[in-house]
């Protein structure tokens, strides 16, 4: 366990008596792609929210690379290199695509606050180049000058992904990256995520689409009723009777 980069230790979270998460113990190793699956309402998004500081766990803590994330402000967690790609696009609708991607790059480069009021934003040539490359990689090249609000839903998801990748995170948390995408786009996204995987970035991915999960994940944790009921390689998970009962039984894989 020496190369564990994210450790969720004994986390409980309840909302008005409802146990959203109980006894969550999860370790993500450096460089691996860890998928979290489970039926609706199993607590997957709550778990991600605990990791990025949107929710504070009732007990337990989340440790990233030796740093305790519990109780830290969201921007501090981001500055440590933990970046989340949201399920519902959380973009900057009134900014153009290039700005949408340049802003996260500047956050990574300049830190959480820097008052640079005299320099021209567009003179940040390196940042602009990098943002353009990322957007072109994701097939958004022709639209870099349009406002993010004018994008289609699928394109907004891709922009969301571009904003996450632009920060070169040490740990990328992906919340259903292909939800709502057409088949063609889903495949393109899988290819892209495989490419990122090859670069050695650690990822935690929540996904409903089993096709996506089994083509990407190194290890899988199955969440049901706020508990992890099974953890292992895709093969182990596929054959676990408890998983079949809780989740996979509904849709044949």
């Amino acid at each position: 366990m020496d190369n564990t980069v994210l450790h969720v230790a004994d986390v409980h979270k309840s909302f008005a008596g409802l146990h959203a998460l109980s006894d969550i113990d999860l370790s993500v190793k450096e460089g691996e792609t860890h998928a979290i699956i489970g039926p609706n309402g199993a607590g997957k998004s709550t778990l991600l929210n605990v990791c990025i500081g949107r929710l504070k766990p009732d007990t337990g803590h989340v440790v990233f690379d030796g740093e305790n994330l519990t109780g830290r402000a969201p921007h501090e967690i981001n500055q440590l290199g933990v970046v989340r790609v949201f399920q519902t696009p959380e973009i900057f609708p009134d900014l153009n695509l290039l700005e949408n991607v340049m802003v996260p790059i500047l956050a990574k480069r300049d830190g959480s606050f820097k008052l640079r009021w005299f320099r021209r934003f567009w003179s940040e040539v390196d940042v602009r180049k990098k943002a353009t490359d990322i957007l072109e990689d994701l097939g958004l090249g022709p639209q870099i000058q349009s406002l993010a609000t004018s994008l289609s839903r699928g394109d907004k998801r891709r922009l969301e992904l571009a904003m996450g990748l632009a920060q070169e995170p040490r740990l990328l948390l992906l919340d259903e990256p292909t939800a709502g995408m057409a088949r063609h786009d889903t495949n393109a996204t899988i290819d892209l995520l495989k490419k990122i995987k090859a670069s050695g970035m650690t990822k935690v991915i929540i996904e409903h689409d089993m096709h996506v999960v089994f083509s990407l994940a190194d290890r899988i944790s199955v969440l049901a009723g706020g508990r992890i009921i099974c953890q292992g390689t895709p093969e182990e998970v596929k054959n676990d009777p408890r998983v079949k009962e809780a989740y996979l039984g509904e849709e044949q894989v």
Partner: peptide, 22 residues
């Protein structure tokens, strides 16, 4: 300036700004 762009980003989606590390 970059400062001005950050301010416009805050207007556009302040929550996202904090999850972007600002």
């Amino acid at each position: 300036s970059p400062f001005g762009t950050m301010l416009r980003a805050i207007k556009s989606n302040q929550t996202r700004m904090s999850y972007t590390g600002f």
